[in-house]
């Protein structure tokens, strides 16, 4: 009896630990599969960008670049229209971030700390604008931009980008301002500070983390925008990186110089990836704040 009970009681235990090891192994396989899935397309782009255009037809399917070369990167950085597009994108994205942060700081102070009639209605309108399909204003805005003489100018893109950066920035900053203790503001008002002084000298320093997060997300959105950039620009004077990359090589799909396109793609993506990795905590919190709050 005693002899027979020993195996009976140990077998399930051994099986469960074997199962656990198996489970852990499967788990690691799963992690590796996810990593491969998520990173492979980017790896493939880097690999292609390191292959010379002449060799590409022969070596397109090999998993490593047989003769790594930087010639595509040299070509990309000596193509004037690509350099112009980098400059335009930088101007547009920085301009969009600065203007939307200034406007949103002012209005989030009003929405977060003041009581007035029509506030809820205004919040509804701002939320409504944030889900506006860009296509709904594409035609109407075309005439506005032409009337203001902003067609094919970075200013025209900055103005049009307000439709998606401003509502988001106002939302997130408002929910942040609301959490700032009212005592801080009252103390400043008692000391005789004007509302603008209160905002810039007292509240803004406290708001820095939220400003950084929303500014970063606005930058990424402006840097990546395509539909307006495609429609409201016509040449190197205002064309941004996404438009340049989408139209790289121009002609038919078969003749598209993919090695060059991949090099340009890697060039414009690396700064974004670094930015995202450095600020990943801010970005995750900003995304979830934006999604949960509206």
């Amino acid at each position: 009896m005693a002899v027979s009970t020993v195996p009976v009681s140990t077998v399930p235990k051994r099986r469960s630990s074997a199962l656990q090891t198996l489970g852990l192994g499967l788990f690691w396989v799963l992690i590796v599969v996810i990593l491969l899935y998520v990173l492979f397309p980017f790896y493939w782009a880097i690999k292609t960008s390191l292959t010379s255009s002449a060799d590409l037809p022969q070596t397109a399917l090999s998993f490593f670049p047989p003769k790594p070369t930087l010639e595509n990167y040299v070509t990309v950085f000596t193509t004037p229209s690509f350099l112009y597009s980098l400059r335009n994108s930088l101007v547009v994205a920085v301009g969009t971030v600065l203007i939307s942060l200034v406007l949103a700081s002012l209005s989030s102070y009003a929405l977060g700390k003041f009581r007035f009639r029509g506030k809820t209605a205004l919040m509804y309108i701002i939320l409504g604008v944030s889900v506006f399909p860009q296509i709904a204003v594409l035609g109407g805005m075309y005439t506005t931009i032409q009337t203001l003489n902003l067609y094919n100018k970075p200013g025209g893109l900055v103005l049009s980008y307000m439709i998606f950066t401003l509502p988001f920035t106002v939302w997130v900053l408002t929910s942040f301002v609301r959490e700032i203790p009212t005592e801080l503001e009252e103390a400043a008002l008692v000391d005789g500070a004007t509302p603008l002084q209160t905002l810039f000298k007292v509240l803004l320093p406290v708001m820095m983390p939220a400003l950084a997060t929303t500014g970063l997300l606005a930058f990424i959105n402006a840097w990546n925008e395509y539909l307006f950039a495609l429609t409201y620009t016509s040449d190197d004077a205002a064309r941004t990186v996404p438009v340049a990359i989408a139209s790289f090589g121009g002609g038919s799909q078969h003749e598209s110089p993919f090695a060059l396109i991949m090099a340009a793609s890697v060039v414009v993506t690396i700064p974004l990836i670094i930015l995202v990795l450095v600020f990943q905590r801010n970005i995750v919190s900003g995304l979830t704040a934006g999604a949960v709050k509206g």
Binding site: V38, L39, P41, F42, I220, W223, N224, Y226, V241, P242, V243, I245, A246, V268, T269, L272, I273, L275, V276, L277, Q280, I283
Partner: peptide
Amino acid sequence: LVPWAIPTV
């Protein structure tokens, strides 16, 4: 975060 960070275009 990498696929998310890559511009759509």
